[in-house]
Design a protein around this nucleic acid. Structure first.
Lengths: 177, 177
DNA sequence: AGTAAGTTAGAGCGATCGTTCTAACTTAGG
DNA sequence: CCTAAGTTAGAACGATCGCTCTAACTTACT
């Protein structure tokens, strides 16, 4: 049921996630298993949030943390879903706090990892505070994948390859010493 | 009428922009002046798009282009509206192409300006291609203001001050020689 | 004053939504 | 086989939406 809701979001947007549509695709009764449509959305957010938290934790603990983080954050599917969920949260107060708490937790993990690792990457933490680097990573990844998904065609291949080269250099520097 | 539509978007989201709501707030008949609700959205996008294009052109032509760009991109009101418009475009095909064409044009202006200025800022254009820098600027500004607006509370003051310091250094470098 | 054009008021239509409700169906345990 | 619990089918209600339509109102010109 949660899978179906996500699939509908990706295909036709969050507004298409209606009780009738979900019931038609799953054969299950939404209001029986969840009390409310809001509850369904909350469940989707919670599951996806937990998964993302785990993926981000793995990425930050991998041998090339920044690269793994970048790969995770620039996954087009994830970005599309994030857009839909945040857009839905914008008009569903019940979702707002859920989304916010996951966003906070992810950012906390990232900042904590950066505090430990920035110097290894040869980045001065005074000049580029962890919070700034984290927000930049997420924002850049989001902007790139979203522009791509929306067909804005803003030279995203150049952005992607430029970022790959930058990551090559950073990861080389880190493993270098 | 366009003002009212934008105000409603900012206040209650794009889904609240209905014919009855707009008519109630303006005393004008939506379907008379615009044929369709889609046409109203298109008009909003076109006007806001033109305004933004002009603002970005001014910013890029100012004495401190990067700082002006940053200030413009990190305006919370603009980000909030951008979210609503892109979200609306997600489910209104008529808007998609309009939004995309403005996004393309803005990015084109930015890249063109960066090609001219990156070296003045002491940034190697081979290492950081203009398209990458442009996407990073927009993405970072968006992530920061949106997190702030959504109450994610992800240390945005630290991000903002860090960016200001970074811009101070860049603009000083540029005016230096 | 009279007339024509521009505009709004307000009812109404068909569609869809969330939600509720009752009857029917499925399934497992005795 | 029967019963009880779990679950779905499908109708229904009230609300809201985009949109259309007709009658009324405003405005400007002759």
């Amino acid at each position: 049921m949660l899978d179906a809701a996500e699939a509908i979001m990706l295909e036709d947007g969050y507004a298409a996630v209606t009780s009738r549509r979900v019931e038609a695709e799953t054969g299950l009764k939404v209001h029986y298993h969840f009390g409310t449509i809001d509850d369904l959305f909350v469940a989707v957010v919670n599951r996806r949030g937990e998964v993302n938290l785990a993926l981000m934790a793995d990425a930050l603990a991998s041998t090339e943390p920044l690269r793994a983080w970048w790969r995770l954050a620039s996954d087009p599917r994830g970005s599309r879903l994030l857009v839909e969920i945040t857009a839905a949260a914008n008009h569903r107060p019940a979702l707002q706090s859920e989304v916010a708490s996951f966003a906070r937790e992810v950012r906390r993990m990232q900042v904590q990892a950066l505090e430990r690792m920035l110097s290894e990457y040869g980045i001065d933490a005074d000049e580029f505070p962890p919070a700034l680097v984290a927000t930049a990573m997420q924002g850049l990844a989001f902007a790139m994948t979203y522009d791509q998904a929306s067909g804005f065609d803003t030279a995203q291949d150049e952005v992607a390859s430029g970022m790959e080269r930058f990551l090559d250099r950073l990861e080389a520097q880190r493993s270098g010493d």
